[in-house]
Design a binder for these strands. Structure first.
Lengths: 142, 142
DNA sequence: AAACTTTCTTAGAACAATTCTAAACTGTTG
DNA sequence: CAACAGTTTAGAATTGTTCTAAGAAAGTTT
């Protein structure tokens, strides 16, 4: 019965990540991962907060930050820092890269296959590669 | 005569960039581009400010930020944002990339030739590629 | 489900990095 | 050297983010 298992897929997803499926985490996960139109989203904390408020979900900004970081930690999100005070959380956690429109501040995915990194220098002994970020910065008229 | 042309190379460099060679800009340029030991530096605003103070150059933090941005604008520096509140100014403005040690927060240059980017997707019409940043994030024990 | 433990959420304060402001100062030009 | 535009400054203001301590909700045990 749907009444007994609201958003069961999301609940499972949170549980699998070791996170209690609380009211606010579920609401935020719904906004992030089950947005009506699209799929891959690039959201700032403020944007997500605004969406939550607009959707009548009462969450504090602190919880937004907590949740975004916990989701990121759990591999449900990926953080992309584009410039000084501007950091996005990307719902696409597959191997991929980004176009960054400097004028509008918009971020756009580039499938991982489209960028071939050859002959990466071997990182110093003892260091593991955590991730490779490629950001192609575009100049667009603001 | 050296008395008439102190740091003439730097003076020229600033003038060529359309910047008045003021006392503080010259002092900062000297710290950035003529550091005793090395050549390529990755400095934060705070670090540069600390160096200036240690060198008995009285500059306000506001001027540090102004100068760093003006130098960057003029192509004398390149800004690299690695994470939320952490942005470096790199004296190496040639085409190159970076290793970022997440633990220590250190940045290390990778010569441009060592990374081959194939088949970059064509950026949308009307947009020019301003720069391609590749950051290889390394996990080192903090 | 009452009692209990643990984990979450919250408002607001605190913080760090950066930018702004308005006044004082300096480099340059005539 | 006078005058002006460009620069510097201290301190306030802003922005994005984290911390704190207290109350609320979830999970557990009975």
């Amino acid at each position: 019965m749907s009444k007994d298992r609201p958003y069961s897929a999301l609940v499972q997803r949170l549980k699998a990540a070791g996170l209690r499926p609380t009211r606010q985490r579920l609401a935020l996960a719904k906004l992030l991962f089950e947005a009506p139109g699209g799929c891959d989203r690039h959201m700032t904390a403020e944007q997500l907060h605004a969406e939550a408020v607009a959707d009548n979900v009462r969450v504090s900004l602190a919880t937004i930050y907590n949740s975004l970081h916990q989701f990121t930690e759990a591999g449900l999100l990926r953080e992309v820092v584009v410039e000084s005070g501007r950091s996005y959380f990307d719902t696409n956690v597959t191997d991929h890269h980004h176009f960054y429109y400097e004028g509008s501040g918009r971020l756009q995915d580039i499938p991982g296959e489209l960028v071939h990194l050859d002959s990466l220098p071997t990182p110093p002994a003892g260091a593991k590669v955590a991730r490779v970020d490629v950001i192609i910065r575009l100049q667009d008229d603001e």
